[in-house]
Design a protein around this nucleic acid. Structure first.
Length: 560
RNA sequence: CGGGGUGUAGCUCAACUGGAUAGAGUAUUCGGCUUCGAACCGAACGGUUGGGGGUUCGAGUCCCUCCACCCCGGCCA
């Protein structure tokens, strides 16, 4: 609809220029927006304000000139000049009722588009180390990342979601040592407890399962506890598998599923790490100093060079990261997005520097990054410092068990990724009923209930509906239709900006408008035509809420 | 000190990317079920958008400068 109006304006201006009533203009960029205030019509353009200078006319006069020459169309009721020189457009009843038909016709496809043109994109998110359970911070990454995947699919992208496991390196060794210590009956208070060991209670559970010889069924393999506390490698494999399985289960309960999993260890076993290190050395971007191998990241915008291979011969964490991203690139993903916590900010420059050093014509800005700010957890009015080593944190599964997946997802995705959010545990649990997600779901359930009621009255009502005759004349009805009309654009915009929270806000507003309407007017009235019109409106709202909630990974219940 | 982020109502957050009178929820105070679901609705209260300067028809949004908070600045990941 926006496009229709901006085309109309553009055409009008072109005609005015050709007939000499306006000077020749360099560049005309017509911006049409949905209005905030219903008094300003449905759509508005500031074109007269932006062109007034180059036309040497006062904005209001220019606006009236454009308006007088705008051709009449079926989708516009009328237009007017307002304020400093805005042109406001009022849509016709015809245009709005066609919208409802479109929603009902397209169903779950309403709002979708093909901007992505089926181009493949790899979206990596969560990627937590398998050294402990997922916490709220991971939950935020999961909620945002998964919603972005759904958003991108709705925009026609060919999305593959991937989870990268850092299942090798020092922290995994620390995990194995911690489990081993627990197997031997050593606890964190004991002087023999390993340095940098993981103190959480879950380590004990892993140790017990290992000693019991439990068999773990993972996606790609099966591991049985060897029971022997001396076999550190066996302990490590068992512990990693155990914790991966736990994370997968937590994510599944959170309605998050990945298309693929990638193991850091595979980059070592396949020799890819060694290969790219050699290639980077050959490219001339490295040097030896103090017994370590350095990458000249300063040549790619870093403030100092970084160590790739430590004195002890092992690699720093970003080296396998580079290998991993080469792997993504070689799998053919010209589009890649990494959703991570803001604490990983520093690695972006390093990984990109490594990719550039390889001279593979990878774009400088590849891969794309979306960082979410940290979650501050508050309990009893005090900040809970998240520390995996100390075992102090709120796990995702505790949270989901307590307040439910829908409420947790909504809470974590409803804020802009860039805002650092405060998560008050007590508030989240006690006030979970106040979560706006229920407000939105309730609107969906209410409409479903009305439709059930209609079916009770006449099981065949749907077929008998006359869809062409809209009787919707109320201001509230107009407002709702105007809101429904924005949905496709919200989907597009949220994807372009990687900001799924705009969907959440949109749904909150739509639900609010419907609740208000529902409270003042009855849908199932006597008058058949009016009743059918209102049913159609309700069906439109219901469909859009369902589509929007689906993008947020939240259920749309028929009753609650 | 350097890099990134944030600062909007008592609290938690929005604001369609520079537009018209800065909006919701929550808290507080009133009012609304004999009526399709009250997990709802209506009303009131609540603001110098951290401070100061600048750019222009127009700034919460862009630029400069201070102030405060969060993250990063390991041969940890």
């Amino acid at each position: 609809m926006k496009e229709n109006v901006s085309c109309l304006i553009e055409k009008t201006i072109r005609n005015l220029v050709e007939s000499g009533r306006l000077p020749v203009l360099e560049k005309v960029e017509v911006v049409v927006e949905f209005t905030r205030d219903k008094k300003h019509g449905d759509l508005a353009s500031n074109i007269a304000l932006t062109l007034s200078k180059s036309c040497r006319m006062n904005p209001r006069d220019l606006a009236s000139l454009i308006l007088q020459n705008i051709p009449t169309t079926s989708f516009l009721d009328h237009c007017e000049v307002a304020g400093a020189g805005f042109i406001n457009f009022f849509l016709s009843k015809d245009a709005l009722s066609k919208l409802l038909l479109e929603i009902i016709d397209k169903k779950e496809r309403f709002g979708c588009n093909n901007e992505g043109k089926s181009v493949p994109i790899l979206i990596e998110f969560v990627s937590a180390n398998p050294t402990g359970p997922l916490h709220v911070g991971h939950g935020r990454g999961a909620a945002i990342g998964d919603s972005i995947c759904r958003l991108m699919r709705a925009n026609g992208w060919n999305v593959q979601s991937e989870f990268y496991y850092n299942d090798s390196g020092q922290q995994i060794r620390n995990l194995a040592l911690s489990v081993q210590a627990r197997c031997l009956g050593i606890d964190p208070q004991n002087p023999d407890w390993p340095d940098d060991g993981y103190c959480g209670e879950y380590i004990n559970e892993v140790a017990r399962a290992y000693l019991d010889g439990e068999t773990l069924e993972a996606k790609d393999k099966s591991v049985t506890g060897a029971k022997d506390p001396e076999l550190l490698d066996e302990i490590q494999e068992f512990a990693v598998t155990y914790l991966r399985r736990e994370q997968d289960r937590d994510l599944a309960n959170f309605n998050v599923n990945f298309d693929s999993f990638f193991l850091e260890s595979s980059l070592y076993s396949s020799g890819e790490v060694e290969r790219i290190v050699q290639e980077i050395i050959d490219s001339g971007y490295t040097y030896e100093k103090d017994g370590a191998l350095w990458l000249k990241t300063t040549q790619f915008g870093d403030d100092k060079d970084r160590v790739m291979r430590k004195q002890d011969g092992t690699f720093t964490y970003f080296v396998p990261d580079i290998a991993y991203h080469i792997n993504k690139w070689e799998r053919g993903f010209k589009n890649a997005l990494n959703e991570q916590g803001a604490d990983h900010h520093g690695t972006i420059t390093r990984v990109r520097a490594g990719l550039q050093a390889l001279k593979k014509n990878i774009p400088e800005k590849w891969p794309n990054y979306l960082l979410h700010q940290m979650v501050t957890v508050v309990r009893n009015g005090e900040e809970v410092k998240i520390s995996k080593r100390k075992g102090e944190y709120l796990t995702l599964s505790e949270l989901v068990n307590e307040v439910g997946s829908d409420a947790t997802r909504y809470f974590l995705v409803a804020r802009a990724p860039n805002s650092q959010l405060i998560f008050d545990i007590d508030l989240a649990i006690s006030a979970s009923n106040d979560n706006p997600v229920f407000y939105i779901q309730y609107a969906h359930a209410r409409i479903s209930s009305v439709l059930r009621k209609m079916t009770e009255l006449d099981s065949d009502w749907m077929k008998k509906m006359n869809l062409s005759n809209s009787k919707l004349i109320l201001e509230e009805e107009h407002l709702i239709m105007q809101h429904l009309m924005k949905f496709p654009e919200i989907i597009k915009q949220a994807a372009q900006q990687y900001e799924p929270h705009t969907i959440a806000n949109y749904l909150r507003e739509l639900a609010g408008e419907f609740h208000s309407y529902y409270n003042s007017y009855k849908v199932l009235v006597e008058d058949k035509e009016l009743r059918e019109s209102r049913i159609m409106l309700s069906m439109g709202v219901r469909q859009v809420i369902a589509n929007g909630l689906n993008i947020l990974g939240v259920s749309a219940p028929e009753e609650m």
